[in-house]
């Protein structure tokens, strides 16, 4: 008995319990958020395509994805006979854990940030590149050629576009002088970075959105899944909850990319022109509003554009995005050096 109470004391004193509680809350909130994003995607897709979208389960179909999730949980987990069982089972966790980890550093509003790390942007870039290992493992271990092709494409794609995401964020970091996300938002009290950095910031934002869409493996960069070419790509052989992990991770990743863009370019939880500064909780609203506008933009891309071919994907990155990005980086440095930023 004594040992147990000692253990509890230890947990409380070191803050492990707090961390576990926060982690649990985050997990629940973002699992629901992921489901909501799936529903949103389906609704938005339907509105783009002259359809109604899910409207049967619950009011206006609000519980559709919850029903889907329940279905996926209750499904049998299938797999191929010659699959590398250990890696095959490990792969989905890589993907889902990294995308949930990334959420920890976001400042949702003034005091709502789980983990205010001083290398926040770097942490996000690093974490998002671990996710691709899960995709590679999943494609490789499931012993399916279509999955393998999908996984290889994913490797090629993510390694290339990581550069663009990184450099376009670096361009903005020159402006802020800090990698800490809360610090980045502090800087934006005198104008959102996209306004402060004007031309190079807008270019960096465009590149970031293109590369970010590619990072999440969404159309028009969905080489990895490319359902008309590869069936379902890397997760062809996954079913049930393991598939759901991949699926959910894609949507949470989309949220992360949009949330990072909100934080770095659009002032995070800051309200436009400080109109709701007296109400701190409105920060959460502004953060989510800005994020969902960007999420909608990514959905708009997805339901409009055809998919690129794999070599064109690389051409776009190495011949267009990367050179422009590097020039843009220098341009931003010059602008900061000459103090040409716009301060409101």
């Amino acid at each position: 008995m004594n040992s147990i109470s000692n253990m509890i004391d230890w947990f409380v004193s070191t803050g492990v319990l707090n961390m576990a509680m926060i982690a649990l809350i985050y997990l629940t909130v973002f699992a629901v958020l992921g489901l909501f994003l799936v529903l949103l995607e389906r609704k938005v897709a339907a509105w783009f395509q002259l359809r109604i979208g899910p409207n049967r389960v619950g009011y206006l179909g609000l519980f559709q994805t919850i029903a889907d999730a329940l279905k996926l949980v209750s499904k049998e987990l299938t797999g191929t006979v010659k699959a590398d069982k250990f890696l095959y089972n490990l792969a989905p966790y890589f993907v889902i854990v990294t995308s949930l980890m990334a959420l920890a550093v976001f400042p949702f509003t003034r005091d709502l940030q789980a983990f205010d790390i001083n290398i926040g942007v770097f942490f996000l870039v690093a974490i998002s590149s671990i996710g691709v290992i899960g995709i590679l493992l999943g494609g490789w271990s499931s012993n399916n050629k279509f999955a393998l092709i999908g996984a290889m494409r994913s490797g090629v794609q993510t390694i290339s576009y990581e550069l663009s995401v990184g450099i376009s964020l670096l361009t903005m970091v020159i402006l802020t002088g800090s990698l800490q996300l809360s610090e980045i938002i502090e800087v934006q009290k005198s104008g959102w970075l996209i306004v402060q950095g004007h031309i190079p910031a807008i270019i960096a934002f465009m590149i970031y959105m293109i590369a970010g869409t590619a990072e999440t493996n969404r159309a028009p960069f969905d080489m990895v899944e490319a359902e008309s070419e590869l069936g379902a790509g890397y997760h062809t052989e996954y079913s049930g909850m393991k598939f759901a992990y991949f699926f959910l991770a894609e949507f949470i990743n989309m949220f992360i990319i949009a949330a990072l863009a909100t934080t770095v370019f659009f002032g995070g939880w800051l309200s436009p022109f400080g109109i709701t500064d007296s109400l701190p909780w409105m920060g959460l609203f502004w953060f989510l509003a800005k994020t969902f506008v960007l999420v909608f933009l990514m959905m708009w891309f997805r339901w409009t554009f055809p998919r690129l071919r794999v070599d064109q994907l690389l051409t776009l990155e190495w011949k267009y995005l990367l050179p422009i990005n590097l020039v843009n980086l220098v341009l931003m440095a010059v602008i900061v050096w000459l103090n040409l930023t716009i301060q409101i």
Binding site: A45, F48, Q49, L50, R51, A219, P220, D222, A226, S228, R302, W303, T304, F305, P306, R307
Partner: peptide
Amino acid sequence: MGMDVGAFSSYFYGFR
């Protein structure tokens, strides 16, 4: 054709 190259919306516009 649109769907084969990855543009999904064209499918529904064509069918309409």
